[in-house]
Amino acid sequence: MTYEDWQAPAPADESEASGIPAEVKALAQELLKNGFIESSARPADFNAVLRLRKEIDAVLEPLDLRIDLDEMRGLAVLRVADSASGTPDEAWSHPLVRRQRLTLEQSLLVAILRQFHVVQELEGGIGVREVRVPLDELLSQLQVFLTDTGSDTKNRQRLLTLLDQLKPHGIVSEPDSRGEVTIRPLITRLANPETLTALLKHFRELAGEPEGNETTSPDE
Rank of each mutant, 00 (worst) to 15 (best):
S151C: 05
E180D: 09
N192W: 11
D176C: 04
D176S: 10
L139C: 00
L162Y: 13
E174S: 15
F145N: 05
V172G: 00
F145I: 02
P168C: 06
I187D: 01
L166G: 15
V172N: 05
Q141S: 13
L186S: 10
L138A: 10
S177K: 07
P193F: 06
E180S: 04
D164C: 05
R178M: 13
P193W: 08
H169T: 08
K167G: 03
S177R: 06
G170W: 07
V172L: 01
L160H: 15
T149Q: 12
K154M: 15
L166E: 12
D176M: 10
Q143S: 08
P193Y: 02
L139M: 09
D176K: 08
P168L: 05
V181D: 04
L190E: 01
S140R: 15
Q141D: 12
T147F: 02
I183D: 00
L186Q: 09
S151I: 12
V144C: 12
K167N: 03
L162P: 06
D152I: 06
S177M: 01
S140T: 14
G179E: 00
K154Y: 15
L138F: 12
A191G: 04
S140M: 10
N155L: 03
N192R: 15
A191Y: 03
L142Y: 08
K167R: 15
Q157P: 01
L146G: 01
I183G: 00
R178S: 13
L142H: 05
D148Q: 04
G179N: 04
D152C: 04
Q143W: 06
I171M: 07
T188A: 08
K154A: 14
K167W: 09
K167C: 07
L163N: 02
R178G: 11
K154I: 15
L160N: 09
R178D: 14
L139I: 10
L162V: 12
R156P: 03
P193I: 03
H169N: 03
N192Y: 09
G179M: 07
S173R: 11
V181W: 09
S173D: 10
L138T: 14
L186C: 07
P168F: 08
R189M: 13
V181E: 00
R184G: 00
G150S: 00
L146H: 05
T149A: 13
F145Y: 13
V172D: 03
I187K: 02
V181F: 14
T161R: 11
A191M: 12
V144R: 13
L163V: 06
T188F: 03
V172Y: 09
P175G: 00
G170N: 00
R178L: 15
R156E: 04
G179P: 00
H169F: 11
L162N: 08
P185H: 13
G179L: 02
L139Q: 13
V172C: 05
P185K: 09
T153H: 03
Q143M: 10
T161S: 14
L186I: 11
